[in-house]
Computed example of a mutant assay.
Amino acid sequence: MIRFLKGLILLPIAIVVVLLAVANRQPVMLSFDPFSNGTPAFSMPMPLYALIFAAVAVGIVVGGVGSWLGQGDTRRDRRAKGRELARLRGEAERLRQSVPTGATVGRTALPAPVSRA
């Protein structure tokens, strides 16, 4: 079902992308010199669709890097909680092994330690 829904969504997007590329084949001048109108220092002709696709790709990369950097605190917190969980599991296992089987606390008997083989 998910495969069908992906196809249902991605197929029209792919068609639009192909139509965009076919309709915008004419070359445009890409210039990185905003001060020179006549002969810019660095310019290159390229198809408009390539420029659009490159801009989208750069946007995806910049957005992904920004998102990754923004989640740094969450990743750090998760690592700290994982270390604490491992420490507490080890402590619980050590305490289970130190209590003799069948010992009672108050009126209830403690369960026997569970072996993890």
Rank of each mutant, 00 (worst) to 15 (best):
V61Y: 14
V56L: 13
I52K: 00
R83M: 05
G90S: 06
L85G: 07
L88R: 06
S67R: 13
V61T: 06
V61S: 03
R76E: 10
A80V: 06
G66H: 01
V56I: 15
L85C: 06
R78C: 03
A86H: 03
A55S: 07
L95Y: 01
A86W: 13
A54D: 02
S67P: 05
R75D: 13
L95E: 10
E93K: 12
A50T: 15
L85V: 09
A50N: 13
R89P: 08
D77L: 04
A92Q: 07
T74F: 10
W68S: 09
L69V: 12
A92E: 07
R76P: 05
Q71E: 10
R89E: 03
V56Y: 11
L51K: 15
Q71G: 12
R94F: 02
A54M: 11
L88I: 13
G63H: 05
E93N: 01
L69H: 12
R87G: 01
L88W: 09
G82Y: 02
E93M: 00
V56W: 01
G64T: 10
G64R: 02
A55R: 10
V61P: 08
I52H: 05
V62G: 01
S67H: 10
R76M: 13
L95T: 04
R94P: 12
R78M: 03
A80M: 06
A92M: 08
S67N: 11
V58G: 00
I60K: 12
E93P: 03
D77P: 03
V61E: 07
R75A: 14
W68E: 01
R78N: 00
G82E: 07
R94Y: 12
L88M: 13
G70L: 08
Q71W: 10
E91Y: 11
R76F: 11
I52P: 03
R76A: 05
G72I: 08
G64E: 12
G63A: 08
R79C: 06
E84Y: 15
S67W: 14
S67T: 14
G66N: 05
G82T: 00
R87M: 05
K81F: 09
E84H: 10
R75H: 14
E84P: 00
V58I: 15
G72R: 12
V58P: 06
L69P: 03
T74Y: 12
L85Q: 04
I52R: 05
L51D: 15
V58W: 15
L85W: 04
G70W: 11
E84F: 14
D73M: 01
G63L: 02
R78S: 01
V65N: 02
I60P: 05
E84G: 01
A50Y: 15
G70V: 04
E84V: 10
L69R: 14
R79A: 01
R79H: 02
A80G: 06
A86I: 13
G90Q: 06
E93W: 08
V58C: 07
R83Y: 09
V65I: 13
L51C: 15
G66Y: 00
S67Q: 13
E84L: 14
I60E: 15
G82H: 02
W68D: 13
D73G: 07
A86N: 10
A57F: 15
E93Q: 08
A55N: 12
V65D: 07
G70N: 11
R89A: 08
R79M: 03
R78T: 08
A50I: 14
R83I: 01
G64K: 04
R76G: 09
A55P: 00
A50V: 14
I60N: 15
L95C: 03
G59T: 15
G64M: 12
A86V: 14
I60Y: 15
R89N: 01
G66D: 09
G90T: 03
